[in-house]
């Protein structure tokens, strides 16, 4: 269970952690930005050193291959991506470098630190904006040798603001509590971008073409996504496992992707199949326990739409 102070820090001050499941890919060359614009779902136009943009890299068929924070730099652009996807991403991205002046490289010596919460910018002014829970955030890239000293420095700074360190379990639980889906847990190459609920922060519908865009536009203009992530409250004792069915009046209408035991009960994220989104909110059962839908991720606090 996430300890109360950690969620309070993330909601009201700031919490610090090393993002040990993320890695850095460097993109450099005269054509880097223009080329990358054709690979990402969000608009990178005008990105400058110190700016960041969140988006997805899609498969050719329009599913989410990875999420990425694009970090503008003076000499090269950095992509903050899931560590598990580095090799696949390098292969996928390199395939679309033809004659452009673009070089791609994994930078394993670079590590990522973040502060999340409304006072994240006060922890340290350098780095990039990176709001990962909907309450404000900042990201720093450091050499591996500096990871622990810098984590210590940022943590002490955070404590002086009334916050503190966030451990891995609390970080995972915070995503459920805030309603912010995680790549590899709640979405991945089995989901279309609009299914994640992250479209408002990850997709530009006016930027022009990018790999996988046609599927995204068709989903947007011709109909609804096959399933959509929702936030749930469950009157159970233990958090349900991933893939636990969501039932309504005896019919399976979706499945859980992640869950956490919070101070005020069990919270979860889970997909609802198209056609089952509406209704009074009664009659839902998850893992044998009564459950209440709290609303779609897209309208929730995880993307800054309302308070937790």
């Amino acid at each position: 269970m996430a300890r109360a102070p950690e969620l309070d820090w993330l909601r009201h001050t700031a919490g610090v952690l090393a993002l040990r499941d993320r890695a850095v890919i460097a993109v450099r060359g005269d054509d880097a930005l223009e080329w990358l614009q054709g690979q990402m779902t969000n608009d990178l136009k005008g990105i400058a050193p110190g700016n960041s943009v969140y988006g997805f890299v899609l498969t050719l068929k329009g599913r989410v291959m990875a999420d990425a924070w694009v970090l503008g730099g003076a000499d090269e652009i950095w992509l903050d991506v899931p560590s598990t996807e580095v090799d696949r991403l390098l292969e996928r991205l390199d395939r679309y470098v033809i004659m452009e002046d673009v070089d791609l490289a994994h930078r394993p010596e670079l590590r990522l630190l973040t502060a999340q919460g409304p006072k994240a910018d006060e922890v340290s002014p350098e780095g990039w904006p990176s709001d990962r829970l909907g309450s404000g955030g900042r990201l720093w890239v450091v050499d591996e040798a500096q990871l622990e000293p810098e984590l210590h420095r940022l943590t002490e700074r955070c404590r002086s603001l009334g916050g503190g360190p966030i451990d891995e379990q609390a970080w995972a639980d915070a995503h459920v509590a805030f309603g912010r889906p995680r790549f590899g847990v709640d979405f991945g190459d089995w989901t279309y971008p609009q299914e994640t609920g992250l479209a408002p922060v990850a997709i530009s519908f006016t930027k022009g073409c990018y790999v996988g865009q046609e599927t995204v536009v068709m989903l947007q203009s011709r109909g609804k996504a096959p399933k959509v992530l929702w936030r749930w409250a469950i009157d159970g004792i233990e958090p349900p496992e991933g893939k636990t069915p969501i039932e309504r009046d005896g019919t399976v209408i979706g499945e859980i992707t992640s869950a956490a035991r919070l101070e005020d009960g069990i919270a979860a994220l889970g997909f609802v199949r198209r056609g089952h989104e509406s209704g009074s909110g009664a009659g839902f059962v998850i893992g044998g326990a009564p459950a209440r839908p709290l609303g779609p991720v897209e309208e929730g606090p995880g993307i800054g739409r309302s308070s937790t």
């Binding site: 054709g38 033809i98 073409c209 996988g212």
Partner: peptide, 12 residues
């Protein structure tokens, strides 16, 4: 005539 990376289907 040039082929560049990007576009909905991958190459433009």
């Amino acid at each position: 005539v040039r082929v560049i990376g990007g576009g909905c289907a991958g190459f433009s």
